[in-house]
Simulated assay, not measured.
Amino acid sequence: MTVLALFCLAGYQVTGATAGERFLGRIGAALVELDLWLPAHRQDIQLLAKDRPDEAVVVDDLPVRGVVLPPEEARSADDETLKRLLRGSMGGSLYREGAAGLSDHDGQSHLSITEPVRWSVALLSAGMHGFWRAAVVLAALVLLALCAVMLTLQQPPAAAVLWGALAAAACSLAVWLLARGAGSAFDGALDREIALVVRDGAWLGLRNALAVAAVAASLLFLSRALLGPREGSWRHGADREEDGFA
């Protein structure tokens, strides 16, 4: 159950607004090949920002709907600043709209439903964040209930949580290694970026698992250090009483 709870926690964190928009911005940049796209459109963006200084700059020449830039920043921004603004706007749009945001200003999508990028965007969107929120709460409640049952049976729940956290850490490490290898093996920029997003999510899961394992190990050590001597002294006293009665 600890493995499932940590998996739900990682899903909740990855689909949060900050992480989700950042990951989706990276995927959007890889989808449009931003490094190649921007030089051909930078002048148009800056002209729009100068012609309409009080209106947001709407970028239509992208396969992502709702990309809007602030005019005061886009007017005189360099390439790196424009890339950052475009990644942020694409990430926000894809996070809010999910796979529906993968369309141009006419509402037409040129990606097949079987494309990995569509599934990646859908899984990182705001809608999935609500699902993972409910899942992590339910998993935490079940885990706490199981720990309470173990306490009533006079069994240390910290040991079970420790082994579960170590198993989750091993799974996260395996996914991290596989995603890292896949990112190096893929030729396409979009496939590499999706693999890197999976790698970063696995790293987040690994960090959570190691943190829980450290806490569980500390609690297990403290419980044995505090309760062990008492249990030993009680047994020693009981043995002496038995010897006296004998």
Rank of each mutant, 00 (worst) to 15 (best):
E115L: 09
R87F: 00
E80R: 14
G88F: 04
V136H: 06
G101S: 09
A77S: 08
S120T: 14
A122D: 11
H105I: 12
L123Y: 10
S76H: 15
P116W: 10
V137L: 13
D79N: 07
M128N: 12
R118S: 10
A135L: 14
S120G: 03
D79Y: 03
A126R: 14
S112N: 11
M90V: 00
A100R: 15
V121P: 09
R87M: 14
L124M: 09
S112V: 03
I113M: 14
E80Y: 07
S76C: 03
W119K: 13
L94E: 08
S109G: 14
E115P: 00
H105V: 13
G98D: 10
L86P: 04
R133Y: 11
M90W: 08
G107Y: 07
A99W: 04
S93W: 09
A77F: 08
R133Q: 13
G101T: 10
S109C: 05
K83T: 05
G88W: 02
S120W: 11
V121T: 09
E115I: 02
A126C: 08
H129T: 03
R96Q: 15
G107R: 06
V121G: 08
R133F: 02
S125I: 05
L82F: 01
R87E: 09
G92K: 10
V137F: 12
M90T: 04
S93P: 03
P116C: 05
G101A: 13
Q108A: 14
G107E: 07
E115Y: 04
D79I: 06
S103R: 15
S89G: 01
V121L: 11
M128G: 00
W119G: 13
D106H: 11
R118Y: 08
R96D: 11
R75M: 06
D106R: 15
V121K: 09
G98N: 13
R75G: 05
R84A: 13
W119E: 13
L82I: 02
Y95L: 03
L82V: 01
K83M: 12
L86D: 04
G92A: 10
R96G: 00
D79A: 15
T81L: 13
V117E: 02
E97G: 00
D106G: 07
V117F: 00
L86H: 04
L85A: 00
A126E: 14
D78Y: 01
G107Q: 07
D104R: 09
R133I: 01
D104N: 15
L94I: 04
A99D: 15
S120Y: 08
D78V: 01
T114M: 12
D104T: 05
G92Y: 01
L102V: 06
G101R: 08
V121C: 11
A122M: 10
D106K: 13
S125Y: 01
T114C: 05
L123N: 11
R96L: 13
M90L: 01
T81N: 02
Q108P: 00
G127K: 05
S112I: 03
G88M: 01
G127V: 11
L111C: 04
G88V: 03
A134C: 03
H129K: 06
H129F: 07
G130H: 02
D78G: 15
L123M: 13
H110D: 15
E80N: 06
E97V: 02
